[in-house]
């Protein structure tokens, strides 16, 4: 435990120094193919390390239960800091170090538990594998994720979109508003709104809240807002590019399966043993 605290103390001191001394985290540098290569390197590198040197300090550190608690505690503290901030941004050196450590640790724990006989092995694989995929999809996939907003009106087709920083770009597809329908509750709040759009002057598409349109395997269109007048003349469409959504989505569904098994199968074996001790009056 003390060794773990020392090593992670040094590691996160480095993270803090980077956060304080270096300029903003260069997220774009880690865009594909760099993130893909790093993920591949981590997956194969840790596998080889575990096979070739199972007793090495690095393997013991990364698969230690103390590491789990230390990293989770740091994540709690980081979340609390973010939660109390008025404009939180997890894109920073600190979170880069934290999520890198969490991913490597989870990968090592997965290798250690998924390939040996153990009680509730399927549950272990679903929970840890799912969490690993979700973490990889969101953390490694973040540099490839982008969004743009397009004001779309009825007058003419538009390709002009805006980044969250108000940067202007031109998309390869054009959109034109054909029809917009909004209904209101008696108290004036919007009940529902939907837009009929013309994509590339050829294809009719319908957009409403909670019902995005898949433009391609990586891009989705969302209806996010409209002109708040009795007869709206334009609506705001958001284009989200998220190539890693399949990795993230798979991770989420695996984790949901693991939760179901956690509920059905109950307590893990180790806890049951300690439960019996506790029932006899012993301390855990």
């Amino acid at each position: 435990m003390r060794m773990c605290i020392k090593v992670w103390g040094v590691y996160f001191s480095g993270a803090l120094l980077c956060q304080l001394l270096l300029p903003a985290f260069p997220e774009d540098f880690f865009a594909f193919p760099v993130n893909g290569a790093l993920v591949l390197l981590a997956v194969t590198g840790l596998w080889v390390l575990r096979k070739e040197r199972p007793a090495s300090p690095a393997v013991r550190l990364l698969s230690s239960p103390s590491t789990t608690c230390i990293l989770l505690a740091l994540l709690v503290l980081s979340c609390l800091t973010l939660g109390l901030a008025s404009s939180p941004s997890p894109s920073s050196w600190w979170f880069f170090f934290l999520f890198t450590a969490l991913t490597l640790h989870l990968l090592m724990v997965f290798y250690a538990g998924a390939f040996r006989r153990r009680p509730h092995r399927l549950r272990f694989i679903l929970i840890h594998g799912g969490l690993l995929l979700a973490l990889l999809g969101s953390f490694a996939g973040a540099p490839d994720t982008a969004e743009w907003r397009l004001p779309v009106d009825k007058k003419r087709p538009t390709r002009q979109a805006y980044t969250p920083q108000n940067g202007k770009i031109y998309l390869p597809h054009s959109l034109q508003l054909k029809d917009f329908d909004v209904t209101y509750y008696p108290n004036g709040l919007p009940q529902d709104f939907r837009a009929d759009l013309l994509l590339d002057q050829t294809e009719d598409i319908a957009l409403s809240v909670n019902h995005p349109y898949a433009l391609s395997l990586t891009d989705d269109l969302y209806l996010v807002d409209y002109e708040h007048t009795p007869e709206p003349r334009f609506c705001i469409v958001q284009l989200v590019r998220q190539p890693w959504k399949y990795v993230l989505g798979t991770g989420i569904w695996l984790l949901l399966g693991g939760c179901l098994l956690l509920f059905v199968q109950g307590l893990p074996q180790g806890m049951t043993v300690r439960r019996e001790k506790a029932e006899k009056g012993g301390r855990p």
Partner: peptide, 9 residues
Amino acid sequence: DAWGHFWNW
């Protein structure tokens, strides 16, 4: 489904 991102912090 609603906003385009699984997690928004």
